[in-house]
Amino acid sequence: MVIIEANKISKVFNGATAVDKVEFKVDKGEIFGFLGPNGAGKTTTINILCTLLKPTQGVAILNGFDVVKEPDRVRASIGIVFQDPSLDERLTAWENLNFHALIYNISKELRKERIQQVLEMIELWPRRNDIVRTFSGGMKRRLEIGRGLLHFPKVLFLDEPTLGLDPQTRNYIWDYIHQLKRREKITIFMTTHYMEEAENCDRIAIIDHGKIIALDTPAKLKNLVGGDVITLTTNDNKAAAKEISGRYGLEVQTETGHLVFEIANGEKFLPEFIGRMQEPVTSISVRRPTLEDVFLKLTGRKIREESGSAMEGMRAKMRAMRRR
């Protein structure tokens, strides 16, 4: 069953196209990811789906409701964790959740029970009466996720849920997200620019410059890369590259002192390959392709080469400060 349907939605800001005829369907119960570099249009797409922005063109249906024509119905169907912090840091964890429960019209009988249930799930029950300002970045993020869930939404939006968190905390957050999918059986729509995190999704749309350039399961996306990725160094990379492309008819890329190419069944290929090379191999490795390789293949760029303008850099810094 389809729960989100975006039909060629576009958003133009003062003549600049941020989202360009984006089209996709999300099935009920799946974790659907939007993967793309900074400024690709991920947040803008979420803002359209959650009724905060009107699309310049196109139609989006969420839980059977049109996001432009029936915004209140859509709002009641969704929970959202914004990219930037949105807690009231002067309230306690419990007060933040109680505020949310009230504006989402959760009945009095259910309210207390549900708040406790959520606080226990995000492991903040013992800290419920502490002011949010005293929380760590990871705790705040967990509280925001808990808050997004509180009113039993059909769809939970997570906009860069792990941005600015350290790797350990990021892993924790992911544990919660998986736990949540099992327990609450909701649909999760998330965005990230961390490749390795996108692997957690059932399906991924890769977005660049406002356009979806690929959409599939992580495994199938990785099949777009022709097999395993071989990285090697030699004394004369130029000559070696020529030799490899000449003998195997492969495309060889040069990356800061390394040669990189793709081949099916990399492990089996390796012994024979090393034996036959005229140019002696000084180091070599085989690895499975990652989504980074997919992005590189599709766009010719690395996703994390942050094109980040000064403004974005500043925003990231402010975010990091607030997260503390």
Partner: peptide
């Protein structure tokens, strides 16, 4: 400025 406003604006009220 501190983002809390969005929490209110996205609510079904």
């Amino acid at each position: 400025e501190f983002g809390f406003f969005k929490e209110v604006m996205v609510a079904p009220i």
